[in-house]
């Protein structure tokens, strides 16, 4: 690694070669200034540190006011989605050796910014609730469980992986243009139940997604698929919902 340097502070951290990186953060501190501003931090990190470790290092050692969400730090809670070098990523799923030595971090587009990298997720979850993301089945429950074949389970496997980080929604030009649009994450979570053989409310969800702020505002841009940290084929899921609405059936594929 050509940019690796060793410093006394670095030696305290680890015996490994360290990377000197510059992290430029788009900051917004509403109690200090009405306008966002850029701030650059210089630091030494281990190549196998994650970006969230670097942000923690800044927060703990350089500037305690740097504000960002993180919780599980293992790519499951979906708290630390942010725009890294122009693309939505989870800071806990990026290794420093893979992001380069000059890194630009911004809050996600399409969300109101609360402070620094923290965005307001309330409208996102309101839209999520709109698609009824829970099993609906009023039939009497069987004695043991509602059985499902492996094939029936596989039908919606991809969309069970969503962690609601918002990376797809924040990458979508249709969302930037129209914040009323339901957005890719909600459609993914509707897909998860629409194609579940145990669920009985597919028609209701397809009606919700068939209106003017439903699936049809998707322009098959594929930013969502590229941004998804879980590798969900988001655009494909949206297309499957579109076809289910158009053909009036979930059994066509």
């Amino acid at each position: 690694m050509s940019t690796a340097t060793r410093t006394p502070a670095a030696a305290r951290r680890s015996g490994a070669d360290l990377l000197a990186v510059a992290i430029k953060v788009k900051r917004y501190q509403p109690d200090r200034s009405d306008k966002p501003y850029w701030q650059e931090f210089q630091l030494q990190v281990e190549p196998k540190d994650r970006l969230v470790d670097a942000l923690n290092q800044i927060k703990w050692e350089q500037d305690g006011t740097l504000t960002f969400r993180r919780s599980c730090l293992h790519g499951v809670c979906g708290s630390d989605a942010m725009r890294v070098n122009g693309r939505n990523r989870l800071a806990c799923k990026l290794l420093m050796k893979d992001v380069g030595t000059r890194i630009t971090i911004e809050p996600m587009l399409g969300f109101p910014v609360i402070r620094d990298l923290v965005v307001d997720m309330d409208p996102f979850f309101a839209k999520y609730e709109k698609v009824k993301p829970f099993l609906i089945n009023d039939e009497p429950a069987p004695a043991a469980e509602r059985l499902q074949s492996a094939e029936e389970r596989a039908r919606y496997d991809d969309t069970t992986k969503c962690i609601l980080c918002g990376a797809c929604t924040g990458s979508c030009p249709s969302v930037w243009a129209n914040r009323d649009w339901v957005g890719p994450a909600s459609i993914v979570n509707a897909h998860r139940f629409i194609f579940d053989s145990r669920d009985r409310a597919a028609g209701e969800r397809l009606r919700i997604l068939g209106d003017r702020n439903g699936v049809w505002r998707c322009r098959t841009i594929f930013n969502c698929t590229e941004a998804c940290p879980r590798g969900i084929h988001v655009t494909d899921a949206i297309e499957e919902v579109k076809r289910a609405i158009m053909y009036g059936s979930t059994e066509t594929e």
Partner: peptide, 9 residues
């Protein structure tokens, strides 16, 4: 500016 790929272009 979001750095989208071929789909965005």
């Amino acid at each position: 500016m979001y750095r989208g790929q071929s789909g965005m272009w």
